[in-house]
Write a protein that binds this DNA or RNA. Structure first.
Lengths: 183, 183
DNA sequence: ACCGTAGGAGAACGCTCGTTCTCACGTCAA
DNA sequence: TTGACGTGAGAACGAGCGTTCTCCTACGGT
């Protein structure tokens, strides 16, 4: 098996297991079993579990933000683009296997003990916040709107994860619409 | 040492360590060292670690909501009481040792593997949401306001925990004020 | 004074898991 | 053909930790 292929399979297994069951409760042997990549190869590709965790979060970050941006691009009106973020959240929340925000969960699990994971979570959230801010700026709205919209989105992710419901997305969208109304 | 005293000391140590470093990275031996309660006594009081975790979350839930309600009671105007929630969040975020919401963190750590912890987190969040709803009702405002306010508060907690900043509280308060404005 | 009981200190046990090692096998260059 | 090398399967190692056990001391009732 090609190294690149083995790497992808390992990351696929890591993503499914880490996201679904939490990082600490998944062993390297579980990754091996789910990916078919031998332990020897796993440790060649990722010298320690923590590096596999980092690679998982990093790949997921790119994909997550990519999917969001792709969805948002379908709308042309700047205000609609902002609201589309919440529409996308609703789709995401409804997906099979949704278990909340991977970064918030990882932060709860490892934020206090792993500086590198904590930094990655902060970077992801900053990137998401910056993206929201860019949408607000593109709509010609005051920059101060971005913070509250970000908080609504974060609250929706956390609440959807805990309550296993898509409803927070619609609530957040509605609140966002109100905040966006001209006064 | 009296049993009741030992129990309190054990819970004090559990709260400080579990909240500060995460649950899984704290061993029963750490609890013993920090509390001065022997392992034998610990296991008499809490037959397994999971029960200590539950007792920790339960006691913290009572105290947390008690402190919040106490703070809110200081205001008399119904609208002010709603906003006071966010003022209290700001105070809380600024406390030494603040590390985000204990329940959100616990959910990230154990939500996928412990049904009892997951249920306790849901119960805590439901109680907080109900409390917010009662403040909204007391102010004679539409019940639909409670959801968005809840999401703002949750988003603020998560963001304050990750970024180690008190700013999300003020942002959430400002957004809440806007949502409360008569239109 | 004596015995039964409770409690403390900490060793011990058993399991999990991250990481490394062994060994047998297949491959490819010379 | 041969030998060096890479690889897979899985055993082995070592640490951490939840839980229990041992042993010793102190004390309370008679």
């Amino acid at each position: 098996m090609d190294s690149a292929v083995a790497r992808e399979r390992a990351l696929d297994a890591a993503e499914e297991l880490f996201y679904g069951r939490g990082i600490q409760s998944v062993g390297m042997d579980d990754i091996r079993g789910a990916s078919g990549v031998s332990l020897k190869r796993l440790y060649q590709l990722f010298p320690a579990k923590e590096q596999l965790v980092e690679a998982y979060l990093e790949r997921r970050d790119g994909r997550w933000r990519g999917r969001l941006a792709e969805f948002v691009e379908l709308r042309s009106a700047p205000e609609e683009r902002i609201l589309a973020v919440f529409d996308w959240l609703e789709e995401w929340f409804g997906e099979e296997g949704f278990r909340g925000c991977a970064w918030i969960n990882s932060y709860g699990e490892l934020g206090a003990t792993s500086d590198r994971v904590a930094a990655q979570v902060r970077a992801h959230k900053r990137a998401f916040g910056d993206y929201l801010a860019s949408l607000v700026a593109a709509a010609g709205r005051p920059a101060a709107l971005a913070g509250p919209l970000f908080l609504l989105a974060e609250g929706a992710m956390v609440t959807a994860g805990i309550t296993r419901s898509t409803r927070p997305a619609a609530q957040a969208r509605e609140a966002a619409r109100t905040l966006l109304e001209p006064r």
